Simulated assay, not measured.
Amino acid sequence: MTQMRFGQGTNRITGTVVMDRRTKCLVKRIQPGQIAVIDHPDLDEVAAEELVENRVRAVINAASSISGVYPARGAAYLIRSGIPVVDRAGADIFCRLQEGDRIWLDHDRVGKVGESQAVVRGERLSAQTVWEKIHQTQSHFNQTVVAFMENTLHYAVSEKRWFMRPLAVPGMYTQLKGKQVVVVVRGTGYKEDLAAIYHFIKAERPVLIGVDGGADALLQCGWKPDVIVGDMDSVSDEALCSGAELVVHAYPNGDAPGLERVEKLGLAAHILPGMGTSEDVALLLADQEGAERIIAVGTHSHIIDFLEKGRNGMASTLLTRIKVGGKLVDVSGIRHFYPPKTERRRKAPLWAAVFSAPMAVAALPGSFTIDDSWLRMVWLSLRLWYFP
């Protein structure tokens, strides 16, 4: 179905409604060409990326996609991708429309197909209005930053004793001691960052831990997660049934709401109580079980990340990173340093490598064999650079 951009031809768009107050639940079932109705204040870029990947026809947000708390960029991502956005439609839309209704969008008006009267009205966003809102938000963002810092430090002081205690790790069959461990979290750019370290994973075969939806990213890249850690609310059934060892993140008191879903699938899981986020618990688990190095992909590490998750501080993450220390290598954003393979080939044509590699080998001392580390490193670099 052809997408129609606002401002191109008629403004009227029609489609079938899929509704959910939780965007991460909606993206699991919406089909290309359908219209998403969400209730997502300060729409984040990760949610917007998933809506774009699902090729939705339009998005109607009951809430404000940019409330002014921080410069949320999800709406900008949707509009840049050619997906119309009707904002601030109001919570009543969940009463006035039902899943499966055929509706029309005409500028800022939303109605049912066959009826001329609008059901609700919102604000149709354009690229200009979105960037104006983002600019206005940035002008008083410093106040938000100060409040965030104060909240983080306050809770870090009160929670530090808890983080010094060892986790009550259950008896796991996946061995982490002495291994390199990749922990994949559903954060901004996590799929691209994971793809950027594809060759590292292929060469080193580290233990793969998916944190909730991070397990699905591993599957999409062709890897099976060894362990899945989380409250199991944003991971697919496919990932849960992939054969990974399941660790349900529970509240410190042992209550584990995510266990019910796992049991409904007929699967077994460990319960791991822990304060903080599931990604904190995954990092602490890998550290405590003796991982040699922990490579983090898509983790949340700055104020925008946490405001997008609806958190007003990052005490648990600050304490986790202090405790894990130099063992942690955060590769979030690595996609910016490694262009697509086709670009790399343009920068350095294959014939250059073919002719230069034998010359380098010929210059080696006679005692240098193919098993020596230097030559193996050259060969691995060439292989990772030019071949899958």
Rank of each mutant, 00 (worst) to 15 (best):
D44F: 11
V227G: 00
I322L: 11
A36L: 12
I103R: 13
E115S: 12
E260H: 15
M314V: 08
P365I: 07
S242L: 05
L194Q: 05
I35Q: 08
T129A: 07
V37M: 05
E289A: 12
M172H: 02
V145W: 11
V227D: 02
A196H: 02
K309P: 00
W374H: 14
M19C: 10
Q288R: 03
M275P: 03
Y190P: 00
H249A: 08
L26R: 06
I35Y: 07
D20T: 07
G313V: 09
H135N: 09
M172Y: 04
W131D: 14
A76C: 06
E292T: 04
I93C: 04
M19R: 08
A147M: 10
D106A: 14
T317E: 10
R96A: 11
S67L: 09
S126W: 08
D372H: 15
L218G: 03
P349Y: 06
V56Q: 01
R96H: 12
E50Q: 14
Q136P: 05
G266K: 04
I35S: 01
V56D: 03
K341W: 09
S316G: 14
E45S: 13
I295D: 00
G114L: 11
D255G: 10
A291Q: 06
V110P: 08
R57A: 13
V247H: 01
T320M: 08
L240W: 10
A62I: 04
D20K: 13
T16E: 10
L26S: 02
K224E: 04
D101Q: 12
P358G: 06
A63H: 09
Q220F: 07
L283M: 14
L384G: 13
K28L: 11
A215E: 08
Q143R: 13
R21S: 03
D237S: 15
E238K: 14
D287K: 10
S278D: 00
D371H: 12
G333Y: 00
K347F: 13
F355Y: 15
I295R: 01
V157L: 14
Q180C: 09
A76R: 11
A291G: 08
L125C: 05
G68C: 01
A58P: 03
V331R: 03
A291E: 01
L97E: 09
Q98S: 15
Y251H: 15
I103Q: 05
V281D: 00
G82C: 07
S81F: 08
L125T: 03
W104P: 00
P349F: 03
T144H: 02
R124K: 11
W131T: 12
A217F: 01
D233S: 04
K112E: 07
Q34V: 08
E245M: 05
K347D: 07
